[in-house]
Write a protein that binds this DNA or RNA. Sequence first.
DNA 1: TTAAAATGGAGGGTAAGCGTCCGCTTATGG
DNA 2: CCATAAGCGGACGCTTACCCTCCATTTTAA
Lengths: 242, 242
Amino acid sequence: MSTPTNAVDRLLDDGSGRRPRADARRNVERLVAAAREAAGEVGAEITAHEIARRAGVGVGTFYRRVSSLEMLLEAVLEEVLGEIVEKGDQGLADPDPWTGFETFATAYIRLRNELCDINEALGNTLGNARSELRDRIRLLVERAQDAGAIRPDIAWEDVAFLLVGVSTGDHTIGLRAGGRQWERNLQIMLDGLRTSTPAPLPGEPPLHVHPQTGPSPVERTLTEVLAEGSANSAEEKADSTS
Amino acid sequence: MSTPTNAVDRLLDDGSGRRPRADARRNVERLVAAAREAAGEVGAEITAHEIARRAGVGVGTFYRRVSSLEMLLEAVLEEVLGEIVEKGDQGLADPDPWTGFETFATAYIRLRNELCDINEALGNTLGNARSELRDRIRLLVERAQDAGAIRPDIAWEDVAFLLVGVSTGDHTIGLRAGGRQWERNLQIMLDGLRTSTPAPLPGEPPLHVHPQTGPSPVERTLTEVLAEGSANSAEEKADSTS
DNA sequence: TTAAAATGGAGGGTAAGCGTCCGCTTATGG
DNA sequence: CCATAAGCGGACGCTTACCCTCCATTTTAA
């Protein structure tokens, strides 16, 4: 009980042991909430003024309650990472390895969207929690592979990379998804990971689904495509007919 | 022939119609190459000084050859987008819809990695090329769906989002892939998209592949997981036993 | 009621990037 | 070979953006 476990308490603990005034605590809570929200929306280039504005407090208050912007972000990041690791443990506790993995993956992405890239922004201050997270991912993947639910030619790092991509892919070339695109991305990725057949996609399609006409199987691996690609990588310039 | 088609010629064209000196042309070429390379590595927050340094020229030269940093980035972006669209046309020319799609997807990600997020950085200056790109993706996906190669419950926008995610996911929680992770991401995504069975993964695994022991099928959809997740979204706090 | 605690926002200090200026160098055509 | 216009480099000034402090005023709570 002497070491506060959540961001708010840690930030309020100035070492004097005195109980802070009510408005002080209220403002710290607002600041942490605002920082978490802002981090998810704006990303790493969030400013102290912006957080203070969202929290409805002045900049002065910001810096009295929080020793620095970096401190606040670090506290928030650690808090969220803790929640993610906890989700990993919940997944490992699930008797069904695939379900456990799936549950974790879902929660992970949802939480990761809150952090956005704050993570990378403030460097390697959290080596400990990060290695804990890596452990959970590795265990979840390997357990599902042992159970035959995830294809065996995958490394757990592949999954880590894919999960990032899933949460990142929600806007491109003028297209912008409504914040739940990651759910569809995730399902498609899961279908690529698993050994059994595809599951139905969650949510609504971004715009429309193309009406299907007829079937016809095909076979060629990406490895072959890549080989071709590097074979004719010599540039060719031909005038295109408009 | 009056309107130069590549970035170098466009930047050299100062309207006077005079042929530029040899060193001037050489430096523009270096600048464009450096900008393309730097854009891929550093991303959107690239600086004029950095590009000049990589090109081995002074800042003065940079600004004489290139009216502004924005102009250079725009020229590079347009050039790369043009190449991508061309790859799309090549894919559409392929008689096999799946192969055509696969070829395009590969080339697209490879080129997209060069742009990184310059794209978003300088706003909507390229609405035209972007809509052309969208067209190619839509046609490629729908054609493959008509042929029965891509699962029918997918919208072409899903594919656009997924392709971004695939190229983005190459570093996370202290893990960093060697630049070819996207190939593995892509194959797994393709396996999730297609109607037939998974293909072998390209390249080497990031670190190791977990030795498999035994099989056991499982079934649960992400939709169900999501429903559960939002059901017990009420926070629970319990002291963890260290 | 009153003093300690807290608040807010103007403003100083700093860092970083953009683009210019000008003295020196180099290509090029006669 | 030489004259000259074109080109080169990088120091430097300007602007912008952000971090954090200071202090007159307000709020809490004993």
